[in-house]
């Protein structure tokens, strides 16, 4: 019975992708992808997702570092807050961003009157929407890595005569690097696929805010073959990241780390 359910579960995950691959017009794929509108959306998606990942690294690694320290009071509250966007419907995130940064928003009003800056419906808004949705992935992955590189290992290094600076350089940072890379990759793919928050907060303007997922959705009505081609492209991009994550990069993720530790002990 369990096996049957497991097979059904696998089917739910795999069959849609099989259908997508079967429907793909492989021979026409290069021509469909070479369409200027597709290239424009692809360029925008890659650019914004890269920006998002960069900002997420700058903000997320310190946040993860703070969360990884148990002695911090209120860490549980902080972690809950960081986790909320993970479970929140992205559309709600988009609405919330509008209420904060929209022309009449909490901060947006001041930005507009004082600096003449309007954030919504710009490429910056796309990055913000992606950041809201994908930053938690990076934070939690890096936090897991930091916990894996527990402080006892750093202490062990000190007892061998290594100064704290040497320990940070040779032990803590290198051991966390795979986790950071894994978190960044997760963050990038999540940003690449962002739809709900983006369409709500940034709209769908070709060249500035119409990312691949938005373009796919629109093309489904007008040019279904193109929608399929773009979907396959996104699928390939995601799989490429997954393949890159395999092996050493995945070693930084909490689950993989735990598995490896168990293996060493066994």
């Amino acid at each position: 019975m369990l096996v049957v359910l497991a097979v059904v579960g696998t089917g739910v995950l795999v069959l849609p992708l099989v259908a997508l691959l079967l429907a793909t017009p492989w021979s026409d794929l290069p021509a469909l992808v070479a369409d200027p509108a597709v290239l424009q959306a692809l360029r925008l998606s890659l650019l914004t997702a890269a920006c998002t990942t960069l900002v997420a690294l700058v903000l997320g690694v310190p946040l993860a570092w703070v969360l990884a320290h148990d002695d911090l009071r209120g860490a549980w509250l902080l972690r809950s807050l960081v986790t909320v966007p993970l479970v929140l419907p992205p559309v709600v995130g988009g609405v919330a961003l509008l209420l904060l940064l929209g022309r009449r928003g909490l901060l947006g009003r001041s930005l507009d009157t004082w600096f003449g800056v309007t954030v919504p419906f710009t490429s910056a808004a796309v990055v913000l929407a992606q950041l809201f949705v994908s930053l938690p992935f990076l934070v939690l992955a890096v936090e897991g890595a930091l916990r894996g590189a527990d402080r006892r290992r750093a202490l062990a290094a000190q007892t061998l005569g290594a100064s704290p600076a040497y320990v940070l350089r040779r032990v803590t940072l290198p051991s966390v690097a795979p986790g950071v890379a894994a978190g960044a990759a997760l963050c990038f793919t999540r940003a690449l696929g962002e739809f709900g928050a983006t369409v709500t907060f940034a709209g769908s303007f070709p060249g500035t805010t119409r990312t691949m997922p938005l373009a796919v959705y629109l093309a489904l009505d007008t040019a279904p073959e193109q929608a399929v081609a773009m979907s396959v492209l996104l699928l390939l991009l995601s799989v490429a990241v997954l393949v890159a994550l395999r092996g050493r990069w995945l070693g930084g993720l909490p689950a993989a780390h735990a598995a490896r530790t168990t293996r060493v002990r066994a």
Partner: peptide, 27 residues
């Protein structure tokens, strides 16, 4: 600890997983 000039093996070993066996010993 790092100024005490000791050689220590703590419980659970705590090797540096990202380094080779040689790099661990040479650490």
């Amino acid at each position: 600890p790092h100024e005490r000039g000791l050689g220590v093996a703590l419980q659970d070993g705590l090797l540096f997983g990202h380094l080779s066996a040689r790099e661990n010993v040479a650490f």
